[in-house]
Structure formats: C-alpha cells, structure tokens
C-alpha cells in the first residue's frame, strides 16, 4: 500500500504508464480508497488533455519577410553594441575614421585660408617666378591682329623694331631661341633679327 505523498510523487509516471507493475498495483489500490488522490488523478488527466489541445499559435504571415529585412538591416546599419557578439559590427572604427578625416579636412581648411590671405607673390614658388604675359588690348594692330598691352618694364621697341603690337607670327619662337634668352618670348626673334641686320649694315 502507498500513501498520498508517494502517490502524487509518481503520478506523472502512473498516468504515462511508466511505473512498474508492482507500483501500479499499489497506486491502483490507493486511488480506489482515497477520494482526494482520485480527484487529483482525474484533474491531472483533464489538464494534460487541455494542454495538448491548446490552439497552436503560428508565426505571422510576414514573419520571414521581417526576418530577411532584419538580416539585411543588421548588415547595412551596424548598430550592435560592442562586445564579443557585436564586435564585427562595432561603430568604434567608423567613428575613429570619420574623426580622423574631419581633423585632416579642418587642418587643410585652416592652411588654405592662411594661404589665401597672403600677398599674391606668395602663391608662387620662389624658384618659379611668374612669366609676364601680354594682355589683349581693345585696339587692333595695322595688320588686323589684336594689340597687346604692355606691362611695366616691357620694351616697346627692340633693335628698332616695334614690339608693342607684334604679329602673332612673332610668337613662333623655337627651343633654340628659348635657350638663348630668358626674356619674354616676343622679344627674341625680333631682337635677333634686328641685331643681325645692324651688323650687316
């Protein structure tokens, strides 16, 4: 014979048919004489049946789509906090990179502002002086070619030749001419031509 404590302790095995033949006989005898345990047994059976009959709650129809969106979102927007799991998605390297880039950009901007505020000559390297170039004048030369304004220090005549409104043909200087003189380009041919004509005379 078994008591109520023993009976309740083995009740699940008893209902599931997993107790030994001897124990089953003892429990059958107990439940036949104990109305309290009989009620517990009946309740047990009913509860187990109700649990297994509960309606199944399925995933929503858009469950898989939501999951796909989350997987894509996690890859594109790395918002996981740092840690073993989220390390590969940490924002830290991105913040450092952006910060470094911003610092470089700021430094470049400051240097540029200082540079622009300097006098014009500061734009040129000391070893590469600006080459004075003639500017277009509003007037037209006798040959119909555009006139060129002179600039401070530029000769108007060289060797008797007027170079204030040279023809464009005068700009056909060659490398030999360039080598022989560092003067402005229009001077060279005129100068050499006029000098040689003086010698001939």
């Amino acid at each position: 014979m078994t008591n109520c404590n023993d009976f309740s302790q083995h009740l699940s095995d008893y209902i599931e048919g997993k107790v030994s033949r001897d124990l089953k006989k003892k429990m059958d005898e107990h439940v036949a004489t104990c109305s309290s345990c009989e009620k517990v047994r009946d309740d047990f059976v009913q509860i187990l049946s109700s649990l297994r009959d509960l309606p199944r709650i399925d995933a929503s129809s858009d469950f898989e789509q939501k999951l796909r969106d989350r997987i894509i979102g996690e890859k594109i927007l790395p918002i996981k906090s740092p840690g073993k799991a989220g390390k590969e998605y940490s924002l830290k390297p991105i913040i450092v990179s952006v910060g470094t880039a911003a610092a470089i950009a700021l430094a470049a901007l400051i240097i540029n502002i200082n540079f622009i505020n300097q006098p014009d000559q500061q734009f040129y390297s000391p070893r590469l002086q600006p080459i004075p170039m003639p500017k277009l004048d509003n007037t037209v030369s006798p040959s119909g070619a555009p006139m060129y304004q002179s600039f401070p220090g530029a000769p108007t005549t060289i060797g008797g030749a007027n170079v204030s409104y040279p023809d464009t043909s005068l700009f056909n200087y060659d490398s030999e001419s360039r080598r022989r003189s560092s003067d402005p380009l229009w001077k060279i041919q005129v100068d050499t031509q006029s000098t040689s004509s003086k010698r001939d005379r």
């Binding site: 309740s8 302790q9 083995h10 009740l11 699940s12 095995d13 009620k39 517990v40 309740d43 509860i47």
Partner: peptide, 20 residues
Amino acid sequence: VKSRVNRGRLKLQEKLSGYL
C-alpha cells in the same frame, strides 16, 4: 526534469482545481 514536470503539473492542478 521528470520531478519538475510532475511538480509543475501538481501546481497546475492546484490552481485549476476550482475551475475543474
């Protein structure tokens, strides 16, 4: 596991016995 399942069912029975 078996012990917990049995005790869990007994607790459910206690809670639901009035309704049953």
